[in-house]
Design a protein around this nucleic acid. Structure first.
Lengths: 236, 236
DNA sequence: GTCTATATTCGGATAGAC
DNA sequence: GTCTATCCGAATATAGAC
């Protein structure tokens, strides 16, 4: 049941994403330049990295609203005045953090390419999703929990992203049904039931950590559960 | 695939819970009496019902922190001063709302009793959970989303409740394994994977409503999905 | 029991020296 | 680029008349 997918296991995936972190933050800088008064890129990248980390850390404990900019100032060791020359406003900080996550996800959650069989393609997508949400757990948690506080546009953008994932899964299921690999009736609903199994990993990771279940463990088990559900669907 | 369980369908369940609503609120009143300056029970029950409803409504849109007591005052039509003679403080209001949900759940999520087969008992628990979270959707959503802002004790109480549900499912799976009804390997992990399928219903209900999927539809499909996963587990 | 008016604290944001 | 000091609006909570 070990994956015959395009993945070389989680550690390699983790290293790759982390090594590109500065590039991702540079792109965030580029997209929000007008809002950032400091102009020296190397300085900005270093500071933004710290600001994003601490914001996610504090917000995920008490909520973004509850985090005062003063709290953030103390946590990062950057004074209020200085901080505001990087973030412009608290709302803009939110926007930058969302951009950050989207940049990372866009660069990593790529299509399988060489994989052909519907089942293999599905497995790959499920595993990659678990991997990326493991690397970026604080961001996914934040995005999920805070989305209802966003303004209309931002919220709808987030929801659209969510639905895209679900749609991707549904499409893969459709492929499988067309090739008589999965005996699934309603692929849309089935995809909707699979998605919470992906979200489970970043929403309740503490629970699995406490039980000693690691990323690859979870991916293996979750994929097996889904496979069983897809196979057994014939009997319904 | 229609349930041969102790349930007479959702509408009957809904009516029963709603008809007892005043009793539940009376119990909340009893448990928080010292914090409520107004003493006339009939008045308190009526006002608390409105206060709870509006609080859940506003909080579930923008978050409990973001809801000012002024907002609540305007929404309920009760003046600031008057409001404070019912809630003592915003934090106490939070406590009362949590009590409210716990009271309702304690009275409705009862054990199957006469049902014997492990599969039937599991189906019953899953369906009842979907039913109760449908009636009390705003409360469950609130409790899930706000729990990380609670103080230590309250948060741990909420988590304990969560784990109890998961444990209940795991125990039923164990029963089934013992009687060779389910070929499941790790019942703890399987229970952990089933739980998000229950939470899905109150966390993303808008999605299913938009697709025209009702409570009993969801319960049927979700239970079928779980059944298939349990059966197919043998092949792993 | 209900209201209006107000005390007080806190958080976002900026000015301006260095 | 970074800091300290400060402004100002908003939110919780209360006092006290009716």
């Amino acid at each position: 049941m070990t994956t015959p997918s395009a993945h070389a296991g989680y550690p390699a995936f983790h290293r790759q994403v982390c090594s590109r972190r500065d590039d991702y933050i540079r792109e965030v800088f580029a997209r929000h330049q007008e809002a950032i008064r400091v102009k020296k890129e190397s300085v900005v990248v270093r500071k933004l990295a710290a600001i994003f980390d601490k914001t996610l850390e504090i917000s995920n404990r008490h909520g973004f609203q509850a985090m005062s900019v003063r709290d953030l100032s103390e946590a990062t060791g950057i004074s209020m005045g200085s901080l505001y020359s990087y973030i412009e406003s608290k709302e803009r900080l939110l926007g930058m953090i969302l951009t950050y996550g989207h940049v990372v996800v866009d660069h990593t959650l790529r299509i399988p390419e060489a994989l052909t069989g519907p089942r293999e393609r599905l497995h790959h997508v499920l595993r990659t999703h678990v991997y990326i949400t493991e690397v970026m757990q604080p961001w996914f948690y934040f995005s999920y929990m805070e989305s209802r506080h966003f303004d209309r546009d931002t919220r709808e953008q987030t929801i659209a992203g969510e639905l895209r994932t679900e749609r991707l899964i549904a499409d893969l299921l459709d492929e499988g049904v067309a090739q008589a690999v999965f005996p699934v009736r309603d692929t849309g609903l089935t995809a909707a039931l699979i998605k919470p199994l992906l979200q489970e990993w970043y929403l309740k990771r503490w629970k699995y950590r406490r039980r000693g279940i690691g990323v690859d463990d979870y991916a293996d088990r979750m994929i097996a559960f889904v496979d069983a559900a897809l196979n057994g669907a014939a009997e319904t």
